[in-house]
Design a protein around this nucleic acid. Structure first.
Lengths: 156, 156
DNA sequence: CTTAGTGCAAAACATTTGCATCGGT
DNA sequence: ACCGATGCAAATGTTTTGCACTAAG
């Protein structure tokens, strides 16, 4: 039950402390909204978009505006507590990222499933590219689009 | 001057023929708009978005609507003559894809440059994943985000 | 007390859709 | 002639912005 994405209460305390330190060191205010959003984000064990986070928080009776959600999610990205993904749908997907173990995604095109994997060869490719192109790679995005069921492999 | 992305007139004839065959075999109409758009797309040697294609065609005195551009670009994707990329900006980027040699991208975050590369290890990763997850991978997207100039590596 | 952060609504933006018309077949 | 494709404008859905108000420092 304790997979790599779950966050126990203990472990959330670490996240909160990390966030507090980031806010303090960047002279940003420690508003209750920011902590509430952080907590909600870390209660979600799957990818989510802003709208579903908004709904989720509304249902939990929190008063929060979409504007603040967008602002705070960006802040959380900057401090490394949230990672954003563009899987090709209408809106961006997010996931919590504390103690983030580098992983990439397989997005099923015949279901809503998203698998995660980690392959060390990515790092090797990155190193090759840095040498070849003389650049400094800061991040990457790798998504494989796959069919779970071969019988869905129909040409339209 | 003849890089893998350039398309000479000769080679465009092949593209046009390929498109004609696709349209005929799929009972789609051979409208002049479709051929004009195909030609314009193939005259562009870089990634482009719909709006810039629209402006480009307006400047060239073509009468075309955005709706038709979106429709036709989707058609061109379906027949494999155009590939769509999500690099993280506001809108999707496209590129011509006839005789497409599989390649991925390095997007510079401190300039507008985009490099292309091809690494055989991607294919190996794909095969591993298909075995591990029991899925059939249909496509992928790999983008590295990089700095060209290390001095731009400032934390804000 | 200062001003960053908030909520709300309006705006901005890319993309999609509805519909009358046009023109391939 | 039929009906798929087009152009235009309106609609949509996501994200951003302007602004008055609130509250953190």
């Amino acid at each position: 039950m304790n997979n790599k994405n779950s966050n126990t209460a203990d472990n959330f305390e670490q996240v909160r402390e990390y966030f507090v330190k980031y806010l303090e060191s960047h002279s940003q205010r420690k508003t209750p909204e920011r902590f509430t959003i952080l907590k909600e984000v870390y209660s979600l064990n799957h990818h989510f978009d802003i709208e579903s986070l908004y709904i989720h928080m509304k249902n939990a009776k929190y008063i929060v505006s979409r504007a603040t959600l967008y602002n705070t999610i960006e802040l959380l990205q900057k401090c490394g507590l949230v990672k954003k993904h563009l899987f090709g749908g209408a809106c961006a997907q997010y996931e919590k990222a504390y103690n983030y173990t580098q992983h990439d995604h397989i997005v099923c095109i015949d279901s809503t499933d998203v698998y995660e994997f980690c392959d060390p060869r990515i790092e090797l490719i990155k190193q090759s590219l840095e040498e070849t192109f003389g650049v400094k790679i800061k991040s990457h995005s790798l998504v494989f689009y796959a069919l779970k069921n071969e019988e869905n492999n129909i040409e339209k």
